[in-house]
Simulated scan of single mutants.
Amino acid sequence: MAHSHSHSHSPQPQDGNARRLLLAFAITAGFMVIEVIGGLISGSLALLADAGHMLTDAAALLFALLAVHFARRPPNSRHTFGWLRLTTLAAFVNAIALVVITFLIVWEAIQRFYHPQPVAGATMMMIAVAGLLANIFSFWILHRGSEEKNLNVRAAALHVLGDLLGSVGAIAAAMVILLTGWTPIDPILSVLVSCLVLRSAWQLLKESVNELLEGAPRAIDVGELKRKLNRALPEVRDVHHVHVWMVGEKPIMTLHVQVIPPHDHDALLERIQHFLEHHYSIEHATIQMEYQPCSGPECRLNELHAGHGHSHHH
């Protein structure tokens, strides 16, 4: 059974996320400048690739910080869910930035194969090692926040992980250049690192687009949820008009439930709510209880999709 663990938006986790993001942002932005200078001095594309990742990281962390700030704003009459969706939007922008930077680095690497550039291995090595240490520290800070299941902190951690791999690649390239003088290793490794980062970016892009398009969370199988609710509560005859989507990290749901007229309407409603919260961590559900069989084109559609015979049409 799929369990999605919901987390209440208490101020502590958000404050913790904000502190982690701010610290990681300071380290990343500071080191990005060092890597750009080092990459230009040594002529290393792998270092510049890493600096490119760090630039998007700094932007990613800044977006994430802003999103955490906006998520704290209470709902109002215009934004009834508050500003939580901004965190998803920030993750989406981060993913696109990563994809663009990756393509730019690959393009530059292809140019380097045709026109090899001299690379100062020793300078490259020093900066790559320092970059690795800075990235490990940033990743450690952010990874402590990942138990929040916050898409934004995870987005930022993914960026930093890409950087960490970039630094490892730059160190490896610097060693080969120092030992053999073979400079094509520099663009080769920058392409390899870019491919790893692209994979992470693609995953992030899929997740954030799913949320922006009001898609059901991956952890919740709507067909299975309907069948289980049907089996768990004998009074429930049919479940239809089910909509489930994410706002921030919270799943939200609306559904129509055809029931045998209960003695205690509120008690049955409470049992349905308890089922959704206990099995699927859905704390916010709007449930419409009906005593007549569902009629209308949507119901027939639901029957076709559900593929289980709980309809009571005559």
Rank of each mutant, 00 (worst) to 15 (best):
A306T: 07
A18L: 08
G307L: 11
T286A: 13
S295P: 04
A267Q: 15
P75D: 06
W202D: 00
V93Y: 11
Q111E: 07
L84M: 12
P187S: 11
V119M: 11
A232N: 11
F63A: 00
L225T: 10
S167C: 15
V209Q: 02
G52S: 11
A95S: 10
E298I: 14
L164A: 15
H278K: 15
G181M: 08
S138M: 13
A58Q: 02
V176C: 08
P217F: 06
L189T: 05
L22M: 10
Y291E: 10
L21Y: 00
E249M: 13
R73C: 09
I188V: 15
T88Y: 01
L48P: 00
W202G: 11
E35M: 13
W202T: 14
D266H: 08
L45A: 03
M32C: 14
H159S: 10
L55A: 06
I252V: 15
Y114C: 04
I110M: 13
K226Y: 00
L225Q: 03
P262S: 05
C195Q: 05
A51L: 12
R199T: 07
V191N: 05
P118W: 00
I287K: 06
H279R: 09
H143P: 01
R271F: 08
G82K: 07
G169L: 02
Q14V: 14
W182M: 14
S42Q: 09
L196P: 02
L158V: 12
A51E: 06
P261C: 09
L164G: 06
I282V: 15
K228S: 10
A130L: 15
E283I: 05
T88L: 05
R78H: 07
K149S: 07
D57P: 04
H69I: 00
R20C: 11
M54C: 12
R227I: 08
N210K: 06
M253N: 00
V239G: 02
Y114R: 12
F275P: 04
F31M: 04
N210P: 08
R199E: 01
G166P: 03
T56L: 06
C195A: 13
L225N: 06
I177R: 10
N135D: 14
R199W: 13
T80K: 15
F70E: 09
I260F: 07
A306H: 15
L40Y: 07
E249H: 14
Y280R: 01
V129D: 02
F275M: 10
A58M: 09
T286H: 12
A90H: 03
D221I: 09
V242I: 14
P293T: 00
P251D: 05
M175E: 06
F103N: 11
H313G: 03
A285C: 12
Q258A: 10
A122L: 14
A49V: 03
R85L: 11
S8K: 04
V99I: 15
T254W: 03
G39H: 03
L301F: 00
